[in-house]
Nucleic acid binder design. Structure first.
Lengths: 345, 345
DNA sequence: CTGAAAGCGCTTACAG
DNA sequence: CTGAAAGCGCTTACAG
């Protein structure tokens, strides 16, 4: 590969001058010199050595896209359609803005902060210009904010840390819309199903929306009506068995994700139940398969592609020193009624 | 960030010695020195500056994962569940082997080879140790093989170039198994549906298997029974309309991918047809949604996670100079009979 | 308008 | 068993 030095020799100029035309600092340069160098650069097929650039100046044009994958799931993180659509959208924006994407997925570690240390190390090693981070909770995001002095943008993070730049959606509103829809259809006994019995982050917000709708209808809420769904397939089946026994208590199941909703739907259909006649089911996110499943699932739509694009755009704005008006970007959601909810009235 | 020089000063040794302990070249080193340096390294939280390393030696520990995305599809490349599972599997293997993953998706370009030039430039700029490349045809792979002097491993590539390392599956066998299954169930009029009217690469192999099965049953084959399915949603709907009119000619549709199979199934169901009573449908790949759709689709299973893992493993073997026995790795497939095929006899 | 030169943090062949 | 020193390809503050 040809170097700046070689180009400089060919053009009878210094490396400074070549470097200047490469970076477009050509205002006070003789146009003739500029054109001559540009031509040679093209002819010789010059490609920047990013390693040299990385060590000589302080930006790498690398953006790290980090997933913290808490899952003990048999699947890999990208098999979640939410994650993969987000990834694809971020890649496109990163590339189109002239940056490079370094992908890092942190998996479960023995030590408590091992996965975070790996993220920090990777970012430092490569002197990434910034990071988009997915799947860390408030505490973890604050740890990273302390440990790293580059711009970070989080997705779906609920930290109140003043420097925590975030892109998220109206989770509370989404939870409200789903439950109001169920109530409007005459449902009064609704079960809320999420990752944990005491939901955090997005699930907590969705639950808050659920409660708000119940309050509007003067309906009581009990934590007994929250079910935790294990990520791991086998224990999830057990949970569904358990739920199946208690199903007489409910007329509708509010799942915090389409994936769980469709998984549960299959489980109950295999048990011989009809959806929505025997039990109504709702999801969240409007994944592709909430549409292709039978019956298609009533859910909350969010624009995942826009979310990924917005996160990268915000990150690059900070990197390039442009003013960022909102630390928290909240994208709208909307209800998508389909056929998995029975009209009770 | 602390540098090797600083560590060396603290330990009262040279940078050479520090570098040696970092790289484990400690055979002929005084254990005391080694331990002292190791301790300081840990205390000071030393992180390698990859830029400096990249410029000083000839390997970067970066592996480029490249997708060539010919699609004019409204979706991004990673929204294809096949691609995203593969990606996730490759990321995991890359990380676990101590490498870093640079992701690059080449999108449609004005110039014919523009997308390939970008791939070459990216690989050179970062001095990637090797590339795993997805979605290029034989001609494109040969161009890249010429242009780049680093190890490349392709996925699903059919080039006969002697240096073309590939990981693929038994596509011909898969095509054969599907069609034999249809024939065994009494189907005699089968339509083959793929990206092009004159299928290439994986589709060509699957078609070859289809023909082999027909030959075994002494059945004729006509190119009239091949349908091209456009990637772009709107024109695909038109093609389905067209197909719908000619549907009386067939009892079964052999789709070259689960995605198209499930898309078509929805189209026909919306037209009021029953699957498989009115028309039988088969897919290929055994994507997650071939299982969750109703009826679940009879398809050919391939182990995508293993494919990604194997591709990266093969690449790293070449990078690290280990002997690679097979230039072409062919993973097995198997028939997964589900409920989208009618028993005619 | 252009250039000489130092410096970024590492590796490595060689000397002792 | 350990170190001095050159070199990788770039950028940039400064001089002229």
């Amino acid at each position: 590969m040809v170097t700046i030095k070689e180009i400089a020799d060919l053009a009878n100029v210094s490396t400074t001058t070549v470097s200047n035309v490469i970076h477009g600092k050509t205002e006070k340069m003789a146009p003739a010199t500029r054109d001559r160098i540009t031509k040679i650069l093209k002819e010789k097929n010059y490609v920047m050595n990013m390693g040299a650039r990385l060590i000589a100046c302080n930006n790498s044009r690398l953006i790290g896209v980090i997933i913290n994958n808490p899952s003990t799931e048999d699947k890999n993180a990208l098999q979640d359609p939410y994650v993969s659509e987000l990834f694809g959208a971020m890649e496109r924006q990163i590339r189109q803005k002239g940056y490079y994407m370094l992908t890092y997925i942190a998996e479960q570690e023995q030590s408590l902060t091992g996965h975070l240390d790996n993220i920090v190390k990777t970012a430092q090693s490569w002197k990434t210009d910034g990071l988009v981070i997915l799947g860390v909770d408030s505490q973890e995001s604050e740890f990273l904010l302390e440990a790293l002095d580059i711009p970070l943008v989080f997705i779906d993070n609920f930290s109140s840390h003043p420097h925590c730049l975030n892109v998220g959606i109206e989770d509370e509103e989404g939870g409200y819309l789903i439950t109001r829809h169920l109530l409007e259809n005459g449902h009064r006994k609704i079960c809320f199903l999420a990752d944990r019995k005491d939901p955090i982050d997005v699930d907590a917000a969705r639950l808050a929306g659920h409660k708000r709708a119940l309050r509007e209808y003067h309906l009581p809420f009990s934590t007994q009506d929250i079910f935790a769904i294990p990520r791991e397939r086998i224990s999830r089946q057990k949970t569904f068995e358990d739920l199946y026994k208690k199903l007489h208590r409910y007329t509708a199941l509010f799942f915090s994700s389409d994936y769980y909703a469709s998984d549960a739907m299959h489980f109950f259909q295999a048990k011989g139940l009809n959806i929505p006649e025997d039990i109504s089911i709702t999801g969240f996110d409007d994944n592709y398969f909430s549409q292709i499943v039978t019956p298609p699932i009533t859910t909350i739509h969010q624009d995942i592609t826009e979310k990924g694009r917005a996160a990268v755009e915000k990150l690059i704005a900070v990197i390039e020193g442009r003013p960022v008006t909102e630390t928290r970007t909240i994208l709208p959601v909307r209800l998508v009624p389909r056929s998995s909810v029975k009209k009770m009235i």
